[in-house]
Amino acid sequence: MYVNKNLAISDTGFIFNPSTGDSFSTNEVGKFIIDLLKQKKSKEEIISQIVLHFNVDKVNADKDLSDFFAMLKSYQLMLDENE
């Protein structure tokens, strides 16, 4: 899994995908996750980072992350490794 390295994210949570021209808005946790994805972190690593930095348990972090990944995929911001 990876996200486009050139994805521009501003501090305000504004995302621009230069390869498609789409723009998005995300929140703090979303931005945190995308930054980790850009560093090629695995899902497990991301979950433990979330749990480390935010006030949430592992089960909920996992559930929300799966949903977030699904959205990233549907917006074509994230691709599977072998694609």
Binding site: F14, I15, D22, S23, F24, S25, T26, N27, E28, V29, G30, F32, I33, I50, L52, H53, F54, N55, V56, N60, A61, D64, L65, D67, F68, M71, L72, Y75, L77
Partner: peptide, 15 residues
């Protein structure tokens, strides 16, 4: 101290 959590969210702009 941990930051308060809000589930990650992403929304396409100008829909």
């Amino acid at each position: 101290s941990k930051k308060s959590y809000e589930r990650p969210y992403i929304q396409k702009l100008n829909t």
